[in-house]
Design a protein around this nucleic acid. Structure first.
Lengths: 328, 328
DNA sequence: ATTTAGCACTAATATTTCTTAAGTGCTAAT
DNA sequence: ATTAGCACTTAAGAAATATTAGTGCTAAAT
């Protein structure tokens, strides 16, 4: 159990380090705590003993350890009211009633990325939760057509197909069958349904069913698993901790990696969740702050990614604000 | 006019520099040219005089100047037969008759990026050349619907609209009108046509025409001007010349910048065109190699972007190969 | 008239030494 | 428990030095 003063010192160190990006000295704090630097130093030593602070070298000031950040966000961080100017800008987006929810979300995260210099991600519902709403075909010429797939959450995918020597009527028959029989099926179950419910029927009623069936089969197997929107990736290049090109490459590759992104949308509770350093699964020096949102029609995850030395309070307040506005 | 030997020396220097990424010394060349390093040095001095070579400092070896590269690609570079293995892999893509052209293109450029560690870009036809093929609407619930726009080139865009208190029938009437009256119009002329040809009519026949008209108007004004596909952007981080974070940020921003991309699709002749260094309009240390392609149904530009110190012959042969295959 | 050997010269790079500044930890006095 | 004071550590910067890989130039050789 930390004393009150230790708590305050730790809090101060985390906040100063976030602000200045360099190790915090005892001298800097003693003014604020009205005691000598020696006193602060002995407190710092105990906090280091407890694994909450670290040194970069024997005679350096202290920086928060991963546990130190953890302790900070769990126990010390205060709720921060959003900057009025920031809030005003965000409100403009949400008060624009012509905008559809998903546009509000992406616009507001774009704004947050610009304001904070962090990176934002919106992860829509996965294909498991998207139900087929409708499919359409648009023929381009004799041998090419476009299949449009729309889900109940408003997610759209399209695929360009080549069908040699297949009559358009037969394709339309198939589309009608699909629209009649498997509307409302989760996207990721459609391939199975196609096989067991549609294939036998088109085998009977549709000419060239083999070719048509295969074409539609690929449409659904290629369906993107998740609607992903990453904004402000280049902001990573602004942070002083990321000046090593190899590291940057590593992070950029991670952000394009499906597994990483899936991990981000996993196992959250309904609050703002914070994953610091190694917990972020991206890079030891990064933090992911994220939250799920859920409305009548839609759900997903929004995440802000930045250096471990990130303005936790500011980001949390922004995410809270957005989550609230989305859910209304 | 350069002597034969000067040509050969310049060629050698460019190729060695491309291979090894460090200034080329006279010693390295004298073995190959069966003369002393002093002879090479005096030749190098003349080539520098002519502005074809440069030094990084007084006593360094030589590197090609921008003009040196230019001279190399215009006069010295030999046609290189593609590596058989590379060719085989690319052919698999183009021989797959189930793939639609645009998928062949993006897959083959993905492959090229992987093989070369450069960045590839496909720029589709701009909205000016895309003609409206069909629009569809899919209602999601009482107040939301999705508008799908398909062009004759197979380009698809969709937009989620919110229409409060508007009956679906009225929307469908509008869609039918649009489909009847302005199919075949270039995308970028649609907003005008909407105003002068559709607005007056829906004003007569459609209730709530004001709201519906505005909604559709935004659909077409938000239409992406160009179909852009960038592959292997992170490869930039692999090149030794790009180890400066600020420079990287600059390049990444350029690659997201519409103006830059537009410039890439501009004013080419029908061959493989090479823009070196400053000519690339991206960065003094980068080169863009690009070509237009044109088929019965589609056209666009494919470009490979890499360091100035790029394997020109290899990239040119690959682009030629792809262009040929596309156009067949 | 070229080519070359030889040598003085240059700049980058690495290594070493020194200095300074900003910190710490520890001890003994308060 | 707090603090003043001091010895000590390290990073960071500056200056001195050596090494290396290259050049340009000159005078002799072909």
């Amino acid at each position: 159990m930390l004393t009150k003063r230790q708590n305050n010192i730790l809090k101060m160190i985390v906040e100063q380090y976030i602000k200045l990006a360099k190790p915090v000295s005892s001298k800097l704090l003693c003014k604020h705590f009205k005691c000598s630097s020696a006193t602060i130093r002995s407190e710092m030593a105990s906090l280091e003993e407890l694994g909450l602070l670290e040194k970069t070298h024997t005679s350096s000031g202290r920086i928060p350890s991963e546990n130190g950040y953890r302790y900070y966000v769990d126990h010390l961080m205060e709720f921060k009211k959003m900057d009025l100017e920031d809030m005003r800008k965000l409100q403009i987006i949400f008060k624009n009633h012509e905008l559809v929810l998903s546009d509000c979300i992406s616009k507001s995260l774009q704004l947050i990325s610009d304001m904070t210099s962090y990176t934002s991600i919106v992860l829509g519902t996965s294909s498991h939760e998207n139900l087929l709403k409708q499919i359409d075909v648009v023929p381009l010429d004799e041998s090419q057509l476009i299949v449009l797939v729309v889900t109940d959450k408003g997610h759209v995918e399209h695929k360009n197909l080549k069908l040699e020597d297949v009559s358009l009527d037969e394709v339309k028959k198939t589309v009608n069958l699909i629209n009649k029989l498997i509307i409302g099926t989760p996207i990721d179950e459609i391939s199975t349904k196609l096989e067991y419910e549609i294939k036998p029927i088109i085998g009977q009623y549709v000419n060239q069913h083999e070719q048509i069936y295969n074409a539609f089969y690929t449409v659904f197997t290629d369906f993107q698993n998740q609607n992903i929107n990453i904004v402000g990736k280049n902001n990573i290049l602004k942070q002083p901790e990321f000046s090593n090109v190899d590291k940057i490459r590593d992070i950029f590759n991670k952000l394009e990696d499906h597994e990483t992104l899936e991990q981000i949308s996993e196992d959250d509770d309904n609050n703002i969740n914070i994953y610091i350093g190694r917990e972020s699964h991206i890079d030891d020096d990064m933090t992911v702050i994220k939250t799920k949102f859920k409305t009548a029609n839609d759900e997903g995850t929004i995440a802000i990614i930045g250096p471990k030395r990130m303005e936790y309070d500011r980001v949390v307040s922004m995410l809270e604000f957005i989550k609230e506005n989305i859910e209304r």
